[in-house]
Design a binder for these strands. Sequence first.
DNA 1: CTGAAAGCGCTAACAT
DNA 2: ATGTTAGCGCTTTCAG
Lengths: 313, 313
Amino acid sequence: MLNGRSTVNPELAARVHAAVRELGYRPNGVARNLRRRQTTLWAVLISDVGNPFFTSLVRGVEDGGRQFGYSVVLCNTDENRAREAEYIAVALADNMAGVIISPADDNTDISALVAAGTAVVTIDRELAETEVDAVMVDNEKGAEMATGHLLESGYRRIACITGPRRMSTAMQRLRGYQRALRSAGLPQDRALIRHADFREEGGYSAMASLLDEGVEIDAIFAANNLMTVGAVECLTERGVPIPDRVGVIGFDDIPWARLFRPGLSTVRQPTYELGRAAAQLLADRIDNPARPTARLVLQTELHPRESSRTRTS
Amino acid sequence: MLNGRSTVNPELAARVHAAVRELGYRPNGVARNLRRRQTTLWAVLISDVGNPFFTSLVRGVEDGGRQFGYSVVLCNTDENRAREAEYIAVALADNMAGVIISPADDNTDISALVAAGTAVVTIDRELAETEVDAVMVDNEKGAEMATGHLLESGYRRIACITGPRRMSTAMQRLRGYQRALRSAGLPQDRALIRHADFREEGGYSAMASLLDEGVEIDAIFAANNLMTVGAVECLTERGVPIPDRVGVIGFDDIPWARLFRPGLSTVRQPTYELGRAAAQLLADRIDNPARPTARLVLQTELHPRESSRTRTS
DNA sequence: CTGAAAGCGCTAACAT
DNA sequence: ATGTTAGCGCTTTCAG
């Protein structure tokens, strides 16, 4: 009756409902999950909730999931494949309805999930081998826009601090940077390219190494928010004026970037929307496991601020 | 045998384990949960993962929970009591092992959790009625330090933008502010006190109202990170120089506050540690439901930066 | 159309 | 010390 199945005497129904309230009866979700062989839980595997990029993503996923009646289990992988594998095992053991993952590596193994029939959506980063629903931004275009903006502002010796080779986003953003230089007819100088770890320290050290090695540069394109902050800190610490001596633009916004001085130019990603879209795709995949995989690419937006002001010299 | 109970023929054990691996057997956590009448899930109820304060808290909880074998379900309440109640119902229905909550209101009703025997720890904010384990900072002292610092820097007409009356943190921080003024022998001017909503917009409007009403002020103490940002934005927008015309200090740090210009003075809370401590307390409470309730108070740290530089005039 | 019964996969209690 | 069984609370199926 409580499932709204039977057609019962309305008076009886009222009495039952009263009793339900009176006795404080609560349906046991665990028993329901066991019987239905499904839960209403999603695992969200990201490298760090401390990074505002992922925060906003998670927020979107949670809001989206709520609409469909799912709760979100947070899983920080710290870019660590072992930890990632652990969480995948948990998701499997707990029969989670779906997994949204920003893989720590292009080759992250999600075959166990696929084999178990668990719905999976990758977010931000793509998987090389397995074909599953994916939501991401147009990284190559975003990076090209950023680099193109520096070129238009008059910078010519533009360095690129990108992420690890094993991550799709790092490579796509690097390609975008290279494409912009090529379009402008500028030489590709390998000394201008650094692979760091997508963290603040990585950005800092990459910036330091560029300065220490005396590589001639007049601008920096940093391929994520944290590395941008690291690079700026390094420049500030060493008294290199931004943008007069070195222009800076970063990929992905930083909250309150407008309160920084100089204001940081960035390529903004629609992070919240990425999360919402992933939630939509996952809910849909759960209802419709057979549908062909979807690949959703959202666009980025250029936000020029003072750190990439037009060069006058 | 898989529970490591029996003493079995080692050769047989090896064969079983081989079969386990071969067949890809995975224990069903849901069935286990039903039988044990317990899960390994914690619900963390906070108002917003988008706020770096809560982000860092959640990170601490997740890291702490992992150590004890728990996963964390993220629940954004948006300071909304209805949504909070919904999530409490979910935690109950899903038999979650424990709940860590930063209540949207001093009178948030957690009696259902208590009645069901679910372990609960409040974090950041306290509950007025129910006595449960609690982790927080010394808000009054932190606010007193902040205000005291402004006084030492030569400010005399210090306004306070605090949070809603219904929240313990807002009231404690207000009291700390008042205590500092009293110690300095300054008058308590009610026109200097504003209750906002702990959000950026709230800080912005409160600041705007102070300026619009022509209240004579030379400094601001804002009782959380987001309201500090809002207040600074308002001042910046209206061209009020910080700290020369108005000094600013905020409660709770903001990531990369040192990249802001002027650098924002803050009272730092040990956010990550708060989360870790709450996790510890919750795990312990689950193992030991009868132990008396604990109330853990951590200390804050003053981080003076340029926004509250000593007045020369 | 409604009520009864089987059983999801595991573990705790019980019998051997 | 080991093997067996009952049953967690629900939903689904099947019989009435």
